[in-house]
Amino acid sequence: MTNPATTTPFAAGRFIKEIGRGKKGARSLSRDDARELYAAMLDGRVSDLEMGGLLLAMRIKGESVDEIAGFLDAAEASFSLLAAPAASHAPVVIPSYNGSRSLPNLTPLLALLLAREGVPVLMHGVLTDPGRVTSAEILRELGLPVAQSAANAAAAFAAGRPAFLPIEALAPKMARLLALRRILGVRNSTHTLVKILQPFSAPALRLTSYTHPEYFTMLSEYFAQCAPADRGDAFLMRGTEGETVANPKRANRIDWFHAGAAQVLVERQPPQETLPDLPDGSDAATTARWIEAALRGERPMPPAILEQVAHCREVAASLRV
């Protein structure tokens, strides 16, 4: 039987009235109101006109910590959480929604290095992005299949491989909102939410990134004040072209959030005088061949990525304990 709560049209005008008064006049929603609103958006109960107004108003205003927390509550309730694999480490979750334009996208290298250490790795993201090289494209060049279901992901974990779940397979309702960028031409709150998802039913380590300083402040407050402690930990860093992998040319600052407390694991470093031997980042096949050579020991591993792997391995092991 269909649940009327998920099919009844949702009147969003009262929410637009709060958030749509411009950057200075707008008021933020409570966590409960944000959860109710985003749940209706995910269920398709908001009209197209109201949806456009909501997304653009929030884009102008910017999300508050309570709004992000409420949105994420609704988002994670909209899909079936994954069972954590039986392993000595908690899973590491790596969102990959940006790809790269100039620097090589070495997110797959990070995932493969962690998997080689016995750490279950779930990557999720988009398959393609015009003008960018995505992790999914590189993984395909490496001969690693894209998972299409939770069962496929579990099989990859059992085989000691990282699993890549497209957002359409992981959280299809979120994928629909994410795709609205192609219509509106601008990002919406879902682009932030997919980068902080914790899709497992057990504790996991989330690798998250930001691109603008205001998001560092907002996400730091979220992980310190609102993220449930029983859902695991998070690493927060400035993205490398938006990806959650250490910059191979210089280490990014990494903040670790555990049980409401923050600790700086890695300090930001100045650019190296001698740049590492890196592939041309504009081609998935070239990046894949370089990653294979690095894994065989034929190319030097970027030290910043090795340091990131070591921190991930240590925290993932502590979460399992």
Results as ranks from 00 to 15, higher is better:
T2C: 14
I16Y: 03
K17D: 13
S28H: 15
L29P: 02
L29T: 00
S30C: 08
E36Q: 14
G44K: 10
R45I: 03
L49W: 10
G52N: 15
L56K: 06
I60D: 08
S64P: 08
D66C: 10
I68T: 12
L82S: 04
A83W: 08
P85C: 05
P91T: 04
V92G: 01
I94W: 00
I94F: 07
P95C: 02
S102D: 08
L106N: 02
P108C: 07
L110T: 06
G118N: 08
V121L: 06
V126I: 13
T128L: 11
D129H: 12
R132M: 06
S135P: 07
I138D: 01
I138C: 03
L142A: 05
P145A: 14
Q148M: 09
S149T: 06
S149W: 12
A158T: 13
I167G: 02
E168L: 10
A169N: 12
M174K: 06
L180K: 13
R182N: 08
I183A: 08
G185D: 07
N188D: 03
N188T: 07
N188P: 07
S189N: 14
H191T: 05
T192Y: 06
L197V: 04
F200H: 06
S201N: 13
R206D: 00
L207N: 02
H212L: 13
H212Y: 15
P213L: 03
E214R: 15
Q225L: 11
Q225V: 15
P228H: 12
G232K: 04
L236R: 03
K249C: 08
I254Q: 01
F257K: 05
R268L: 14
R289A: 11
L295C: 13
L295M: 11
P302H: 08
V309P: 05
A310C: 10
E314L: 14
S318A: 15
